[in-house]
Design a protein around this nucleic acid. Structure first.
Lengths: 202, 202, 202, 202
DNA sequence: TATGAATGAGACTTCATTCAT
DNA sequence: TATGAATGAAGTCTCATTCAT
């Protein structure tokens, strides 16, 4: 997607920041000192590569989202068939149970992206591109489902996309609040998510 | 739910804070000066009622959630029949298009509650109560749907709740990203959300 | 000495303050709220009687010093003979071991009075009067000693006063740092203080 | 004594603080802004070297006391003979007439050390060491007096130390309240102080 | 007269950013 | 280029004082 090349130091800063955030640091509470320490560089160096702290955080976020989306698409692409691809999506979500900064949470959650970091600088308008990228994959999934005869419903593309997004969102809720559902194990939650998809699309 | 009585000044602080947040202020960026100005009181007065800024924000949030849930339940309760009640839920979501701090966004979104404000002080453990309260209403809705014969699926309560939550979540996504769906008007989005519910539950 | 009459509320404020100080409160750290609570009156009432917090504290201090001096003089007056009078002075000092705000500490200590409370308001120039009052008592003590033949030295009044003040000061040091002198009990410290006086004045 | 090495900035802060205090600033009234200005550094810099204002003040005090004691001991050591050494002690006191923050005032005054700054942080337990250091010098003085035959009294070490401390304390009182003793010049005050010592120790 | 709720000046402290090295 | 010591603006919180009751 983005073919921007980053310098070694920029990558160190991105990875430092991503580690901080994945460990639960709050975007608004992170200090430049923490970023420098996490990246194992001097504080001043950050300002050689970014104009402000907000720019560094923004670019790290966009970089991370990009990576996560590429990674997720690779994994889904590696699977064949509607069901396997959908389950792979669920697996990716499940694996990020502990990850406080999981892109999918944001892409699928109601609030959207821009809201979650007030100071987000998205000069490249990457976020809309990311959303389109994810939607393209959903469309691809739906195509395959249709070709396999797993989807027969005659409805707008909007409807079909909505079904997938809603179902993934419902499963994300399960993963995030697992302790509220002691009677449902991960496998069953996946099966029920898939069941809802199939029913909704037929 | 909570029967806590609040003083005039506490309410002024809560309402000032809620207005700030609804206007888009970020929980982490709000200053005590802003709170005081929004509440039209002196800065020091806040500390006569709350020990810290975080306590003031936390209590305002919990107060607001409580109010929103009471209001939403009242509206849903006033409607009769499965379809009318479900559409009323959609209406409440739709009406909060402009509201950046809409409780339902959080209750339905994947991230859950506790995470959205790092410093949340919830001494009364209200959040779990709120979630239960909302689930109780969903169960009630499902009961009515079953009695009306609108729901025939033979599945866990978990499945049925998930269907409702997922569908509402999908509709919230529509409301939040309306501009991405120019071909779908609000009415159609509601109809398609309902369609998905009916298909999933039969 | 001062024949100023104080109202009931003024006395409540003085006594509240004196208690606070005797309990170890620091003159600079005392708040108006604490004074009000200690005096069991409203905060605003303090400002009906004093222009500022500093005035209240200053007048309380002067009131307390006055009382302490009167009390000390009464006790010394009740004793007859040079030795008994001197020992009574030592007793008064000893009894104030626990009292963090003991006038004698200041009257006898090197720093003097004005320094110990930066904001001291002494409109009546009471402090010099207090010092004179104490010196008069020392002179009286010396007279008696001379008449009893206990003092034979032929020196300035300055020298003789200095001997008494120095000796009392040395004993005060003992009382304040008792734990540093485990081998010396109170009685012996008194005897040695008296010994020094007698030697110096003969 | 302390062999702690301080950085340039720490020394700037210490010296700024000591100047403030010597000029009469009250320990409790000093603000961080004043410290920064006196040290000619930024306010934030103070917090790069000390955790709190109280720590900065405490360490400056202990640093100053240490220096003053070293200085005083050097001067007394440079004199030979009981009388010259005692007079040198008096000279040091006399020279500090204008110095509002003279260590000896505290070491010799009745109140002791710990009480004069409520927030004193003395992690190294320096104060007791300082007191011992001063007492060692007094013992040394007494030894010399004994060897010279100036001291013949047969009494506890406590008594002899007390005589020196009391006499110095009496002289400090003279220095502090000079204006009250117009008939006594500095030389005579010293002579009378020495007279009291000799009489008391023989 | 007596109160204490309310105020806002000013305190301490943090941290994004700069810049000499 | 890389650093981190230094800065000071801006934040949170305290508390002397006022004033409506």
């Amino acid at each position: 997607m983005d073919n921007i090349k980053y310098s070694e130091k920029e990558l160190a800063i991105f990875n430092g920041l991503i580690n901080l955030i994945k460990d639960g640091a709050n975007l608004y509470s992170i200090t430049v000192s923490e970023i420098a320490k996490a990246a194992d560089i001097g504080k001043g160096t950050i300002y050689d590569y970014f104009k402000t702290k907000e720019e560094a955080i923004s670019k790290a976020i966009l970089y991370s989202i990009n990576n996560e989306i590429e990674y997720a698409i690779d994994r889904v692409t590696s699977k064949h068939g509607f069901k396997d691809k959908y389950y792979e999506m669920l697996n990716i979500i499940a694996e990020n149970l502990e990850n406080k900064f999981f892109t999918m949470n944001m892409l699928l959650s109601a609030g959207g992206f821009e809201e979650f970091y007030e100071y987000l600088i998205d000069e490249q308008y990457s976020i809309p591109l990311y959303i389109s990228r994810v939607e393209k994959e959903i469309d691809n999934l739906l195509d395959i489902g249709f070709k396999e005869g797993k989807i027969t419903v005659n409805e707008d593309q909007y409807y079909k996309r909505m079904v997938i997004k809603s179902s993934l969102s419902g499963f994300t809720d399960y993963v995030n609040m697992k302790e509220r559902y002691p009677e449902i194990d991960m496998e069953r939650a996946m099966d029920l998510s898939y069941k809802m998809v199939i029913k909704s699309l037929n």
